[in-house]
Design a binder for these strands. Structure first.
Lengths: 229, 229
DNA sequence: ATGAAGTAACTGACCCGTCAGTTACCATAA
DNA sequence: TTATGGTAACTGACGGGTCAGTTACTTCAT
């Protein structure tokens, strides 16, 4: 992006100030890690992609792990921030769902490498942990959003609220999984219009969420329910 | 399992016939790969876990890749088989959903290492592909199940059927993602009763699926729908 | 000239895969 | 039963390639 238009001259792109170089390296590293995953990415790949020697890379980052950690931290911070902002700005839970989904589609489109890192390359156990934390943090925030109005309702007893909370927490992985899965699917099927995919996800999740407010609602009986008790 | 009770004697467990040893090695390799993922698992780990030399391992499997491929192939075949059987044996789509979810919970409980391999360790790109194929195969089968009755309905035009099909395919990643995500979440929260998690997933997905038969149904308007058009 | 930006060449460790050699087991004959 | 030879299961030790991280040196801006 910024690197070809940087130094103006034809082959004269070298000798950047420290901070700018660091930024560039982070960007390049993100792309490499995103494309190949942690283990298949070598420090030399990153250096070569930045048209720089490996040693220089090590003057900016003490180790491969540190570089990777910094990259993922950036991603997680960015994505969390976007989602939080979107959810906070949205009106009610339907708007919140639509906003979250839109953020995810946007992010996956704008930053495909970062997205790949988030959803596919969990090979580094440490990162798996971090991402699960991200999911849980988002989940909690979202459950809070859903329950905000109910919490403010003075008619609801503390016990009833707790039941609601537990239900909401159970719904979180379902929503989260559907969203991620839908985005990934859509990326692999570009012929499908994004609007359709988004709308489908919103409605699917919204209907599931509906349970939270309307209470239990079993599958219709018109189709031989479950065979066993 | 069978290895401690095998040779009877205290330290006398060695020298198995070819086929049995091969089975044991596959089992051990599955556990190792499942726990550490492909790249962090070394052939020596597998050999050591089987209380055998690395060289012997290489007499059964030509390479690390081949060993891994054989392991994953086993898993995919097993899981696909179970799911297909469950869906075929179930009555209608509600039963099908419940059956699929039950299979997934069972499998994750009985074979935690295999499960980990399926949902977490996608670091080998090749395996990621295989698993996406698995998902697509299952998705197609499931969409077929859902549409079976509609296809047999002579009143539905070919065009109407096609719309249904397209909708069904869009729903597949949503269902698939929710199911996997719910199982993974439940494994991390053992205090939640499995029945609750299962039931929640069934209802969530069932409601989402409901769209397929009832047609479009937008989120309720009681909550300031979406902000923009 | 001074120091920061940058590199080529190098080191050490790790790990896949191999090979020469050893051990347990089994068949057949004395 | 016991000796003998054949074979399949098994191992220790090492070659060879790869890759994270280092060192000693050069280039450029001010």
């Amino acid at each position: 992006m910024t690197d070809a238009a940087e130094g103006a001259g034809p082959g004269a792109r070298r000798r950047m100030p420290h901070a700018r170089r660091r930024e560039q390296l982070l960007q390049v590293a993100l792309a490499e890690f995103g494309r190949r995953g942690y283990h298949l990415t070598q420090m030399e790949h990153v250096a070569a992609a930045a048209q720089v020697s490996k040693a220089l890379l090590y003057q900016h980052f003490a180790s491969k792990e540190e570089l990777f950690a910094e990259v993922t931290e950036t991603i997680v911070a960015e994505l969390t921030g976007r989602l939080n902002a979107a959810v906070l700005a949205a009106h009610g839970s339907a708007g919140g769902i639509r906003a979250m989904i839109r953020v995810l589609f946007d992010y996956a489109t704008e930053e495909p490498d970062a997205w790949a890192l988030v959803v596919r390359h969990l090979d580094k156990p440490e990162v798996g942990l971090e991402l699960r934390e991200l999911r849980d943090r988002l989940g909690t925030a979202f459950a809070d959003l859903l329950l905000r109005r109910r919490r403010a309702d003075p008619r609801l007893s503390r016990a009833a609220l707790e039941v609601n909370e537990r239900r909401a927490r159970l719904l979180v992985p379902l929503m989260y999984g559907s969203m991620l899965s839908m985005v990934s699917w859509w990326l692999e099927h570009p012929d499908t219009p994004r609007e359709r995919a988004e709308q489908m996800a919103v409605e699917f999740i919204w209907l599931g969420l509906d349970r939270l407010r309307t209470g239990e609602r079993l599958p219709r009986a018109d189709e031989a329910p479950q065979a066993e008790g």
